[in-house]
Design a protein around this nucleic acid. Structure first.
Lengths: 345, 345
DNA sequence: CCAGTTTTCCAAAGCGCTTTGAAGACTGCG
DNA sequence: CGCAGTCTTCAAAGCGCTTTGGAAAACTGG
């Protein structure tokens, strides 16, 4: 059923019906109700393809997911971010379109999205330092919001980020207050902007107390269970092993836990662990009592808010870039405790 | 730049240009090359909104993600499935559109997708037994492929599934062969079709040897670390605790591991664990040596293949429903070993 | 009761593409 | 040279909606 036929059945012109459906004021309230009721009854919905062509808007937001040629991983926070953003989109009548592209085609993917008018804007995921996508998108004029930040970008741009530096600084301070001096950093890949900021927070906290972070206790790799395990295992094998770990994610944290337990050490007593907790729905840090002490910030909420920013940018294209910095909370769990008496060795 | 203007610059009619671009035979090869070259040079891309209206095809596939009113979790395998399906879509010029909807609106979401013509087909995720979506989609005539199966459905439909029953039967047999007799099942929610099949495989293997599975060793819940931990912890506290666990996912498995270690038991020696491994890119079961013995089946590959089936269904709507059953492989890791001598108690 | 408003509705022109039906430009053959 | 047959190109009619510019109808107040 199309508009023409639907209007005919109502004895109205397509114009009036369209206006009634879209809430324009120049239609009698009684008429509008009649139209609305009939639409529901006859299950009429305007064809979205026609609507998009006529209005010139795609009513869709793009998310480009680059996949490395072989087995690059899908970012595990992705699902939750998407869920959050999707809520916002649905509420506002937008669709979410995902493009999975080989990572060397990413630029082409954005250009295509713009040229074909498939979406009205995009969210940029996993920004690196000085990320080229910022310039590209600014140049081609496709509205965007970065989830995270791209330090070093010349042009201003919209972003939403967690205050990673402060989060890791606070976590480090917490460990220092517990007496820990051999604190290890099990970081994500440090060309990622967020990981770089976390390292700065980690370092700053120690330097503020006149301490120098030991280079052998700072590691960075992909945030998987396996890599977390490997990094922790090798550090625990050092002559002066760490008494505490600051870990980039829940998943790496599980690897660290495994490494600690393999050495027969007790978490929270022999070794303390703080993780960053993205509050993923399928990876809860305990039900009531947190398992890990953690810096927590909901990535789902980040998705919701990033989407809101993007939609407002699209609605009002003249506006300034918008930025939003979320604070992580430090939640105390069972994985931390005072530094053990230096009995060992 | 639109087709009309682009054609004018080339000194051709829009008709010819359109045909050249779309590979129709009735255009001179020399002309086609000239058009192609110009398109690249001037960066012309047909507007997808107009194309979709004119062709009557959406060139998009929908994935509906239901979110329960409060904090329902996002399925952790979702990201990898999407990545796999997305590869197939991209290769074939299709977009992927995700709809995040409150779970009580799911039916309405499908109806809307159909009525508005936003997508050409959908993938159904997380089927339950006798899933109502199968009938709904058949009824409204929206092509679909189920990821998993919906046992009890009357009408035939297309699906792609892992042979969950056989996988769990083999895993159980493997444990039985190692001498285990107190084997626990830490299953997913059993109104989910895949979980129900796994339980059948688990039970069958034991019954085939004249054994009766102990009811107190069969549990089912959401597949989270926390729930896995809780189920395992309570079973380990039984007077006759299990010597082996068959676990529905890597994540639950981590909870089981934690419970085992909390009791001071060693995995692979005191207690064996087999998990089902979806081969998620961010949740690898070890780099070279598998951490867990596991039934493995790549959910990413499932995504790729399910998408292929759906596209073929769309291309040839007259065809029969297609089904595909993937076998999981049993891979041997470090988490299993012979049943310990009955020294305990 | 009527000119002037305001309200309510409509005809028709797009949006940028694809596709049908037809015409023009070439062939080869008698 | 003329014509049937084949290639190549084009004009115009949609696809199903929104939106502009009016016109008709329904209210106003003097």
């Amino acid at each position: 059923m199309n508009l023409k036929e639907f209007a005919r059945q109502l004895g109205l012109s397509p114009t009036t019906v369209s206006r009634a459906l879209n809430g324009y004021p120049e239609v009698n309230e009684a008429t509008r109700e009649r139209v609305m009721a009939a639409a529901k009854r006859l299950n009429y919905r305007p064809n979205s393809r026609a609507q998009r062509l006529a209005t010139g808007r795609a009513m869709a937001i793009g998310h480009v997911i680059p996949i490395a040629n072989k087995h690059e991983m899908v970012n595990p926070v992705f699902a939750d971010f998407i869920a959050g953003a999707g809520e916002t989109y649905s509420r506002n009548g937008y669709d979410m379109v995902l493009s999975v592209v080989p990572d060397n085609d990413e630029e082409a993917a954005y250009r295509e999205l713009k040229a074909r008018g498939t979406v009205d804007g995009v969210i940029v995921h996993g920004p690196r330092m000085d990320d080229p996508r910022v310039r590209l998108l600014t140049e081609i004029g496709l509205p965007f919001v970065v989830h995270g930040r791209a330090s070093g970008s010349q042009t201003p741009y919209s972003w939403l980020d967690v205050n990673n530096r402060r989060a890791f600084r606070r976590a480090t301070d917490f460990l220092l207050d517990l007496g820990h001096r051999r604190i290890a950093l099990v970081n994500g890949l440090e060309f990622m902007d967020f990981a770089m900021r976390r390292r700065i927070g980690f370092t700053e906290a120690q330097e503020a107390r006149g301490l120098t972070p030991a280079p052998e206790l700072m590691s960075s790799a992909e945030m998987t269970e396996g890599r977390g395990h490997a990094m922790a295992a090798s550090m625990l094998a050092l002559p002066e092993p760490p008494t505490a770990f600051l870990v980039a994610s829940m998943i790496s944290g599980m690897g660290v836990r495994r490494a600690v337990e393999e050495r027969g050490l007790r978490i929270g007593r022999d070794v303390s662990i703080i993780i960053h907790d993205d509050d993923l729905s399928y990876m809860k840090n305990g039900e009531d009592v947190p398992i890990y002490t953690a810096t927590r910030s909901s990535v789902r909420e980040a998705g919701r808010q990033a989407a809101e920013i993007l939609l407002s940018l699209i609605t009002d294209p003249s506006g300034e870039p918008q930025t939003r910095l979320l604070e992580a909370e430090l939640i105390i769990g069972q994985s931390t405790g005072p530094v053990p008496a230096p009995a060992r060795t």
